[in-house]
């Protein structure tokens, strides 16, 4: 499996553990609590976000079903976030743990972008896959969102 150098194995394991704990216990992680831990923050309810969560909503646009795994379009944007010199979205990283190549790219931004937005096409393995996006804010740390896609024919 290929990991990007910008996310450590420890962080990945911690995120997986948080996800499993959340699923098994039915608990959700409040951003304030997650921030205290200094790792990943989540938007608890995207339909009713608080002010901090609203800024950090990550929009992931993927097809529900992708017929060709060699060419799966993806659009990721953090549209509500300011892009000011002292407060901006520094990077967006895309991961998919079901694929042989886990890291799908790291996209770095600066205030000159005006908005953290990237559209690309990816190779994905066949089957049901969860695509994870991690957006790093210069002030509020890393925020995570995910979206599912069903790939008919694997493209790896």
């Amino acid at each position: 499996m290929v990991f990007s150098s910008h996310i450590t194995r420890r962080e990945v394991l911690r995120m997986a553990a948080l996800g499993v704990a959340g699923i098994t216990t039915g608990l959700t992680v409040r951003p304030s609590h997650a921030e205290e831990r200094g790792h990943f923050n989540f938007v608890e309810d995207s339909n009713d976000p608080n002010e901090l969560e609203y800024e950090h909503i990550i929009n992931i646009r993927l097809p529900i079903i992708a017929e060709d795994g060699a060419n799966v379009p993806i659009v990721i944007a953090v549209e509500n976030h300011p892009m000011e010199p002292d407060h901006y979205v520094k990077s967006i990283q895309i991961l998919s743990f079901n694929d042989p190549i886990v890291g799908k790219g790291l996209y770095e931004f600066s205030p000159g972008n005006g908005i953290a937005y990237i559209a690309n096409q990816m190779r994905m393995d066949g089957g049901d896959t969860q695509v994870i996006a991690i957006a790093e804010c210069t002030k509020h740390g890393k925020w995570v969102a995910s979206e599912n896609v069903k790939v008919s024919l694997g493209g790896c």
Binding site: A70, I101, G105, Y107, E108, G112, N113, G114, Y117, N120
Partner: peptide, 24 residues
Amino acid sequence: DKTISTFHMNAASSDNPLLAFKIR
């Protein structure tokens, strides 16, 4: 003359990708 974005990609990208990004 200023770098505003750097995208680090790998073999997980498709052939002949069409990248889209935004600038102010």
